[in-house]
Structure formats: C-alpha cells, structure tokens
C-alpha cells in the first residue's frame, strides 16, 4: 500500500497528464460527423506513431557493436516511420478528396 502511495506521489505529474489527456481525447472528438470517421481514425493512427520517439531513444543508446539490439532498433525506427509518414500521407490523401469538390 505504501509503495503504491509513494509511487503516486513521485509520479503525480505523469498521472495528471494521463487523466487530463483521457478527458481531452474524449472531448476533442466529441461531435465528429460520421463522414469524418475514417479520416479521423487514420489521423489518430498517425499520431500514435509518436512511439517512434521511443524507438529513436532506444536506438541512440545502443552500444556500438551490439548488433542484435541495433538490428531490432533499426526495425523499430523503420516501422515507427512507416506508421507516422504513411499515416499522415494517407490521411491527407483522403481529406484532399473531400476538399476539391465545391
């Protein structure tokens, strides 16, 4: 029990971020029209590609010569990039189509 309370106290900033982000995430897309469900999903998909930052940090810390870790890290950065770049480009392509009819 005390370890949990201790943990809460030490990481209270992070916990605030999490709680507020949850509410924000729900509020922010509250009244999205169904037309935009697909682009919104695709855009959100690109945003969680932020995981790539973790991959970059991991990669940048691997000691030279540790090839197993280097290769896994390389894969992680590669996949993360695919997620981010592909996600944003696909979303833009979808939304571009909505725009030009007028």
């Amino acid at each position: 029990m005390e370890t949990i309370l201790n943990y809460l106290h030490q990481h209270i900033n992070i916990i605030y971020i999490v709680v507020l982000s949850i509410f924000l995430g729900i509020e922010v897309i509250g009244r999205v029209p169904s037309v935009l469900h697909t682009p919104l999903m695709s855009g959100a998909n690109a945003i969680h590609g932020v995981v790539i930052i973790g991959a970059i940090i991991v990669m940048g810390r691997v000691e030279m010569g540790n090839y197993a870790a280097l290769i896994i890290g390389f894969l992680a950065v590669l996949l993360g990039t695919l997620n981010v770049v592909g996600g944003f480009v696909v979303t833009d392509r979808m939304l571009e189509m909505f725009k030009k009819k007028k």
Partner: peptide, 22 residues
C-alpha cells in the same frame, strides 16, 4: 512512462481515449 516522455504520453493517451470513443 518508460522514458518519462511527455509527448509520447499525451499523444498515446489522446489517441487511446479518442480511439475508444470513436
């Protein structure tokens, strides 16, 4: 959480919450 990295936290949790609502 692992890296104490705010942008990963906000980005991830935002998408987690918004994605669930969606």
């Amino acid at each position: 959480f692992l890296y104490n990295n705010q942008v990963m936290l906000t980005g991830g949790i935002l998408v987690g919450a918004a994605g669930t609502l969606l």
